[in-house]
Amino acid sequence: MSAIYGLYSDPNVAQVAVNNLRAAGVPDADITVISSEPFEHFEFGHRDARTAMPWIATAAGAAGMVATYYLLGLSQHAWPLVTSGMPVAPLWTNLIIIFEMTMLSAIAATVITLIVTAFIGERGTLYDPEVSDGYILVGVEKTGDAGKLESALKIDGGRVKSI
């Protein structure tokens, strides 16, 4: 047996299951909660909520801004052609491109962070297709004391499965 989990149709019950697991001494990081929707109104949905994603996006945006500023200037001075009596690298027009590239960098960094943290970073394999019918899965992949866990998960309104 590699994992044990309970399926709950009611998020309140799922919350109780999570609380029970904690009481049983399972560290938060070992508790897996899987659902077909985010439960942002429940405590269990807020575990792992802390993320550096906004800061990464901001930093990437700033990096994109600076890089674009210099790349534009470099490419424009590489072959300084005069048009309309404007400077070779006019800030007014370059600002537009700098802005777009700043935003693109921020968006790209956000998506890359997401992929790294939410997909590549996910090592667990615990899953049950019934989740897609609306059940909330609460389980533990590293099973120590199986009986203790099972009693923690076995509450009214839930089924316990193990694999």
């Binding site: 899987i34 659902s35 439960f39 575990r47 792992d48 667990g124």
Partner: peptide, 8 residues
């Protein structure tokens, strides 16, 4: 899978 981490 739909872990809380992924959702967040």
């Amino acid at each position: 899978r739909g872990t809380t981490r992924q959702w967040n």
